[in-house]
Design a protein around this nucleic acid. Structure first.
Lengths: 189, 189
DNA sequence: GACGTGATGTCACCCGGTGACATGGGCACC
DNA sequence: GGTGCCCATGTCACCGGGTGACATCACGTC
């Protein structure tokens, strides 16, 4: 490897993020991203399926990590606790390092309907993968779906709260507290 | 009213649904939809913001109905029960009538990533509106967000279960049962 | 040193979506 | 019963995202 300038995908990602932050998502064109990375529009689309996907490059690795953690967890706890632990720890390992970047990225995603949609489907896909992993462990299908959705909701809201604080504090702790709040919200009156 | 052929929006919606069902979402072009409705592409975009939106024309009314039901509910119950009742009853009134159509529509949405994204953001917007309505009633902000998300999840999953059965059975009942399952899923082990 | 391979470039194209401006039928108002 | 306004629609030109087909070119291999 290394015939052309190395790490074309990484350069494209960096160029895209920089331009999105500078000008806003809508005002940036794929041709401009490619140009800044020293490549062409066509090559951009060989590395990223579309203009949105470049902001979610880490999602597959995160999902794989969570699924692996669920599969490897001991079986002596409630499924929802297994999933929350997997999300909190994988998140702490792969996401928390970005610290204050998290908030800027979150604000960017929130600024565009297209990006919000893409973020939502990433969460939905994550929930579906987690549900499948739970079924693999013998959890009833219906319970697996609901458990996965609830845990991912707790994670997403907890991550948001953590990002709101510019990444100070512990991400896993924020997630676990959010799950506790979710349980409170569902307690019958 | 009635200068040109009446109900351009409705004709466009009917033409779009027909073509989507006939050929699949991706294989249909906006120009074709407009042509079948006896209009032009430009007019389509005056009635619907984009090619996806035509499938979610009822969403604003549904959201408004749910928000109104939440606002009008008695205050002597847990917030999550208020929201579930609002979702179940508004859903029963506005959605359940479609019966077997529901499944076909659901399958269509599921067949396209673009449509799945759009469906997800509609749910997210609904949850945000419900959360706002809860805060209006004095529910703490954090609890409002989580309550709304949980209730919308229960509604969505319950609706899916109901649609899987081709719309037989009672939608509100399916939703309430799903909430009960969600509570079970979150019970600490 | 011919050859295959794989990442990139080039080019032409389709389609979703929009801005600007023209058209023409109904309606109010005189 | 004209006159003029309003507004839904049509027309046209354009931009940008996304793709298919084919060329190119550096590198490793035999």
């Amino acid at each position: 490897m290394g015939r052309w300038e190395a790490d074309a995908g990484g350069r494209l990602q960096y160029a895209a993020m920089s331009l999105y932050f500078e000008r806003g998502y809508d005002a940036v064109t794929v041709a401009e991203i490619a140009e800044r990375a020293g490549l062409t529009k066509r090559t951009f689309f060989r590395h990223y399926a579309d203009k949105r996907e470049v902001l979610f490059a880490g999602a597959p690795a995160f999902q794989a990590g969570v699924v692996a953690a669920v599969a490897a967890a001991p079986v002596d706890q409630a499924p929802v606790d297994t999933v929350i632990a997997a999300l909190a720890e994988t998140g702490g390992a792969q996401l928390a390092q970005y610290g204050e970047w998290a908030r800027a990225r979150r604000d960017l995603v929130e600024s565009s309907a297209d990006l919000r949609e893409r973020a939502l489907i990433k969460s939905a896909d994550l929930a579906a993968a987690v549900a499948a992993a739970l079924r693999e462990r013998g959890v009833a299908p219906g319970q697996a779906t609901l458990t996965a959705h609830a845990a991912v909701t707790a994670f997403t809201v907890g991550y948001d709260r953590w990002a709101d604080g510019n990444g100070v504090g512990d991400l896993p702790t924020a997630v676990r507290e959010t799950l506790a709040d979710l349980r409170t919200a569902l307690t019958p009156g």
